[in-house]
Design a protein around this nucleic acid. Structure first.
Lengths: 213, 213
DNA sequence: GTCTATAAGCAGATAGAC
DNA sequence: GTCTATCTGCTTATAGAC
């Protein structure tokens, strides 16, 4: 068993990682220098090298930290014994909320999808995608056995994510409203879309008159 | 009216832009130096400054070039007078094919969604999103008047795109098959998904037995 | 229109004082 | 554990020859 590090050490390290996450999410690996991170932390670049051997390692630790426990809230979905369709809606809502509440997380995921090498892809799979897709797979098997699992999982995840990866862009497009970013609105829309697609609910009738989702 | 540049000049300029597009798509703006581009073109970095005043301008010209005429094939969809549901499928197929056939294009779009400033976002809107969404909007108005236009457009685009932004990642996931990247397979899957969601076709029956999409 | 040479600055990373 | 100072190499961009 490893000896615990002193509380002060852990805090400094975490402080660095949190600042690094924000900066890397905003500007990418190449767009952030050790000096930038040091400046955000309030220390010198040389001091960072006391905590991390080099920049690639600092980045790897940062995404590990940013991706840690991201499936936790989704895991709770499976603890309930409600109807599968209800659990799927629960999944959609929690997933949408997660993506909405942590824009840095979504940005880092997309940067990894663009730039990740084999090792970093494995971090992404292990910490983020593996359990998320496992949970979703369970729901799909119950609700839509006649669909291709992989294609359907990818579609459902993309259906949610795309609303937030284009959030900045849509402010430049006509017809955009602030409500289109609201996680509850997006979740209801996506849920209606999926339920009708999979033939779970009959079209219309679930939402009050005049509310388009 | 401007005088036409000599053919040789145009070719050199285009040659630079094409190499720049490939490199920027692969490694991002910060990840590519003028020397990298010069090396790919087979010239010196200094020579690039004869064709473009600075790196930001070269990048801007590169994405303008990469995004030029991207809606052309989608425009043809509206020329036909077939049933709207058939035109929507036509749209999905063309769009899927476009995203599949030009991975550099999709990567550049995603890099702009992450890093684009106001000016670059406007390039993205003008060259790529404006007409694509205009075409899609026309189809949606006919087929699904009771849905929120903006939410539904975003969902449909995301439904296609996400299959290809995760293409590299999925090779690290269980259950992935080469067929899941095939544009015809993805288009059929997405089309089935959308048609059922919008209540256009009755579930099942369109595809041969045993083929899951 | 492309070259070599060079300027000025920032990058990652290290040495050694405290 | 953090500092200042520094090394080396790469960055954008320019000057001027050909």
């Amino acid at each position: 068993m490893k000896a615990l590090k002193s509380p002060v050490t852990v805090t400094t390290r975490e402080h660095i990682l949190r600042q690094a996450i924000t900066l890397f999410a905003a500007s990418g690996y190449e767009g952030v220098s050790m000096r930038h991170i040091a400046s955000a932390v309030g220390t010198s670049a040389a001091a960072l090298y006391h905590h991390f051997p080099d920049k690639p390692t600092l980045y790897l630790e940062a995404i590990r930290f940013a991706f840690a426990d991201k499936s936790a809230t989704l895991r709770e979905v499976m603890a309930k014994e409600t109807h599968p369709a209800e659990r799927l809606y629960d999944f959609i809502r929690r997933f949408t909320q997660m993506v909405y509440a942590d824009p840095a997380f979504l940005k880092l995921v997309h940067r990894e999808l663009l730039d990740g090498d084999t090792e970093r892809m494995k971090v992404l799979v292990t910490h983020v995608f593996a359990e998320t897709r496992q949970i979703l797979k369970g729901l799909i098997r119950e609700l839509a056995p006649d669909w291709d699992e992989t294609l359907l999982m990818t579609s459902i995840i993309g259906l949610v994510i795309h609303h937030y990866e284009t959030a900045t862009l849509r402010s430049f497009l006509p017809g955009s409203q602030p409500g289109h970013e609201d996680p509850e609105t997006v979740a209801r829309h996506v849920n209606r879309f999926i339920q009708h697609a999979l033939g779970i609910a009959a079209p219309a009738d679930e939402w009050p008159d005049g509310v388009k989702v």
